[in-house]
Amino acid sequence: MDPNDPTAQLEEELDSDISSIRREICKLQRRRRFLSSSILSSEALQKSIKPQPSPVSSLLSLNKDISPLVRTAGTHAQSNHHRIAFSVTTFPFKDPSPTIDAESEDLKNLLGVRIDICVRNGRFTKPYYLLLRKARTNEQSQGKVRVKVHRHTIPAFIPVERLGRVFLPDAPQVLGDGDGNAETQTQLKRKPNTPPRKQNLNGFVREVRRQLVAWHTRLDAVYLLREQLGIIRRGVDAYPDEEEDGPWDRDVLVDVDFDSGVGETRLKENKLAIVAISPTALEASYVRVEWVDGRVGRFKISNSGMVERAVVIGDGGRDKILEAVLTGGDGKVLTVLERLKKVAFLRDPE
């Protein structure tokens, strides 16, 4: 297409105007959410809508006059208070699946476990759920109930099944012979005349939540490093002359608007000459760093937020100095950039 063509120029101007309008809409939407939250949580507004001792009719009329947005904000605040005080809650749940045997009604009655995680920006992630069902054992006649994981919404890289075998071991199965008598089948690796292992539901939920918190902590650490270096969000912070063709880094766990590009970011130019830093996979155990001179590094983050080991490779082979810097000092991932700045200053004092 000829760039001097008036039609092509008009199309470019229209695309530029559309991009500018979309950026402005995103900024106004963020501003609106911030102001709405500030107004609804203000003490003056809460006092004005708080019902005083009055007849029931006055209270009903007050609820009708209150905006649905205000009522929703109050419910949301109450839910957040509950989340802060109780990060793990349980609830009864009935399995709607028609494939379960109708005679086994107890298998339809599930125990739901909800896990709430608060991340660095003060927001709660979407709740994670565990659905537990009763396991058929001969211990039910003695008043003992065993459970096992039925369904869950935990990410696949967290070994829920393996944790279930450790904390929620199965009891010896009860099988019926041809005459209708029950006989107990001894589990493998179990000494005779020893009682079955007890289940530890609290330990199971605690370990699942610990791994979820560790995962979000690693993600928050990577996001913090990127923010300290400076990021540009496509369609929001970038101007038309700064837009680049090709894919940008996709933020993990961020809803992407493919029209405006929200959710795709790239790093700004920085003194450390780092052009990319991002987790290599969803679990964010390994982080990849790329420098402008072509060096590529990778370091591992432990569940406690420490840099366990690192590898940096350039045109001349491995860079032992940078590897020692990444793992040295206090070893914390949050201070990686501070350690890199000291090395950059020593190499180039200007």
Rank of each mutant, 00 (worst) to 15 (best):
R33T: 11
D220L: 06
T75W: 15
R226D: 03
F345R: 12
V343G: 05
L168N: 04
E43C: 08
E103H: 12
D251T: 13
D241T: 15
K271D: 14
F345Y: 14
T72R: 10
T335E: 10
Q211T: 07
G328H: 01
M1T: 15
S302C: 05
E24P: 03
K189E: 14
M1E: 14
C118T: 08
A77M: 15
Y128V: 10
N80M: 11
V292R: 15
N121P: 11
L282G: 01
D257H: 14
S285P: 02
S260E: 10
D237M: 08
A44L: 09
R146Y: 02
T72A: 13
K144T: 04
V275W: 06
D15L: 14
N63K: 13
K189L: 14
T75K: 15
K268S: 07
K268L: 09
Q140P: 01
R30Y: 05
P92C: 04
I274N: 02
L14P: 08
I301L: 11
K108D: 01
L229R: 09
D255C: 05
G246A: 03
I115Y: 05
Q185T: 15
L272G: 12
E243F: 04
G297Y: 08
H76V: 15
G261H: 02
L163I: 09
G305W: 08
R218K: 07
V312T: 06
D319G: 00
R209K: 08
A273D: 09
K144C: 03
L224F: 14
V119F: 04
A156L: 12
V325A: 01
F157D: 02
P159D: 06
Q52G: 08
K126I: 01
V70L: 07
Q9E: 07
L40A: 14
A344S: 11
R22T: 09
L322I: 03
D17K: 08
V287Q: 00
G180I: 05
K271A: 14
V149C: 09
H150L: 04
V333P: 03
L253P: 03
D116Y: 12
Q199E: 10
G316S: 07
Y286N: 10
P98G: 06
G178D: 10
T75S: 15
A8G: 07
V70F: 05
S16G: 13
P51R: 06
Q173R: 06
F258G: 00
K126C: 04
P196W: 00
E43Q: 15
D319Y: 00
F124T: 01
D15C: 05
P98Y: 11
E103I: 15
T327R: 04
E242T: 01
L225E: 12
R309I: 09
G176P: 09
D255N: 12
V160L: 11
R197M: 06
V174M: 00
S42V: 06
E338V: 02
S41M: 03
K50V: 05
Q211S: 06
V256R: 12
I21T: 10
K27I: 02
F258M: 00
I115S: 01
N80K: 13
I100M: 02
L163Q: 12
V252E: 05
D65W: 15
K191I: 13
P169W: 03
L35V: 11
D106A: 13
R226T: 03
R162F: 15
S285N: 10
V236K: 11
H76S: 13
